[in-house]
Design a protein around this nucleic acid. Structure first.
Lengths: 217, 217
DNA sequence: ACGGTTAATGACTGAACGGTCATTAATTTA
DNA sequence: TAAATTAATGACCGTTCAGTCATTAACCGT
């Protein structure tokens, strides 16, 4: 039994004004993804970060502000990166879609932050402020990004003519559902299908489904 | 001002032992879908059904029991119907998949009960009992149902050889995501795409993606 | 009409949680 | 080293909610 006799001796306070915000959003991400928004207790976030609840309120005005910070830090940069990829891409649109989806999966889906979309979908109704925020900062940019890829493919005659708005959602759905499964019923191994196989089949179906038919000469 | 002078006169009690359970599950469905599981207050469910909270506990042991009753009443019968469709189907597998997906959408997705999957995905982590229940009674049967259709198609050489487990999830994803959108960020009109268009494009891509390539003679 | 049965009620309990603020102590400055 | 500054604390408040139970009243048989 180390640390005797007072095992519960209060650890010394540390003043670390600079490092706190990042530590707190990291801790918050952990707990939000684990518990959801409403069910996250700020005491738990504080404990996870090794500080008291009071300290949390020193850096963030409210639970909502804390959540927004987590999203801005974890998702928005990935979107910016995706936009850059699309803007500068030279090859065919199939490859672009592949790279974009794969990149987004690696940056978001496969990370802890990949638990956030589930949370937002789940609790949007109960927290309209958060829904509006996420709509603006993530969904609008995300769908615009996919749309630009689909339209590029159609314009270059690599993809069939399809209803772009619908297809944008169809392309995103399997990726989003993969994130959702991973963070809900069967943690980390949705029905025993590994990521590689899942994405292989995803591209196999999606790209065959989008490909412009080769007109018999 | 009708009903004067005591506008707040307590409405008379009514004893309706037979009708209550169905009324209560209907009210519960409404509130669960609106608020989610944890955020649903049993007082609200009772109010929605026009009874007091005490009455609710007369018919259901707990919130959990109430929720299970809602699922058993609203989703399980649709699965049974789907199983019957597949078991007796004579045509080709493309048409079977079409009918199954369309039928499930009409029976579940387009109804209020279509809000339940979102809720389960969202809160499975926090309520393991409910996750296990839903896994057993819905997910297992649902995935088995889709799997049987995919396998049928491959066996009859109507579909390509694919990784069945992965494709089962890929086929379900767009339908599930449609339900989720509908009950979260943009209520009832996911990004301005109507159901008909969405499902047209869904089948267009999925079936093209699954179809066995016609070997050049 | 009246007494017995039981469906229905709603005030109450105990636990939980977001947010506050007076107090404490680490660090800096003089 | 002593005073000033401010980061950090945690007890506390008001509110919310699942579940309980003593009381009330609707219905039924006689």
């Amino acid at each position: 039994m180390p640390n005797s006799p007072a095992t519960k001796a209060a650890p010394p306070r540390r003043r670390r004004k600079e490092a706190r915000p990042a530590e707190l959003t990291a801790a918050a991400l952990e707990v939000f993804v684990e518990k959801g928004y409403a069910a996250t207790r700020l005491d738990d976030v504080a404990a996870q970060a090794g500080v008291s609840k009071g300290t949390l309120y020193l850096y963030f005005d409210s639970k909502e502000a804390l959540f927004k910070a987590v999203v801005r830090e974890g998702i928005v940069p990935a979107l910016t990166e995706g936009e850059a990829l699309v803007a500068g891409f030279k090859g065919n649109s199939e490859d672009l879609l592949r790279e974009l989806a794969t990149g987004m999966w690696q940056l978001i889906g496969a990370q802890r932050i990949g638990g956030i979309p589930k949370l937002v979908f789940a609790e949007a109704r109960n927290f309209p402020e958060i829904a509006a925020f996420y709509q603006q900062e993530v969904i609008q940019r995300g769908t615009a990004l996919i749309r630009s890829v689909i339209e590029r493919g159609i314009k270059r005659k690599e993809f069939r003519k399809v209803d772009v708005a619908a297809v944008v959602h169809l392309v995103m759905a399997p990726v989003l559902m993969r994130m959702i499964w991973r963070h809900s019923i069967d943690c980390c191994a949705a029905a025993g299908v590994d990521d590689a196989t899942y994405f292989d089949e995803y591209f196999g179906i999606m790209l065959r489904g989008l490909r412009a038919e080769r007109k018999a000469s």
